[in-house]
């Protein structure tokens, strides 16, 4: 139901963040996240940054599998 895109924050100004996903750039709303800074990674949905995210999916997968085995 919810196509999300992980992207890097390039700049933040007045509740709007410029994000970069592999070279595709767009302005999205930063109103729903506090203290967003350039260099942060966010999950974007429908033009709104909905979550600050921490690591790559590969790293996380490795952690989960290590716990599982």
């Amino acid at each position: 139901m919810c196509v999300g895109l992980s992207a890097k924050v390039v700049s933040v100004k007045d509740g709007t963040a410029l994000i970069d996903a592999q070279g595709a750039k767009r302005e999205v709303s930063a109103d729903l996240l506090e203290e967003l800074e350039p260099g942060d990674y966010v999950m974007v949905h429908a033009g709104v940054a909905i979550a600050k995210i921490t690591q790559s999916d590969e790293d996380e997968t490795v952690d989960i599998m290590e716990n599982l085995i």
Binding site: V3, L5, D20, A21, Q22, G23, A24, R26, V44
Partner: peptide
């Protein structure tokens, strides 16, 4: 990569 990024944004 940029085409991939745009496609990712728009599904």
């Amino acid at each position: 990569p940029a085409v991939k990024g745009v496609c990712g944004m728009l599904g």
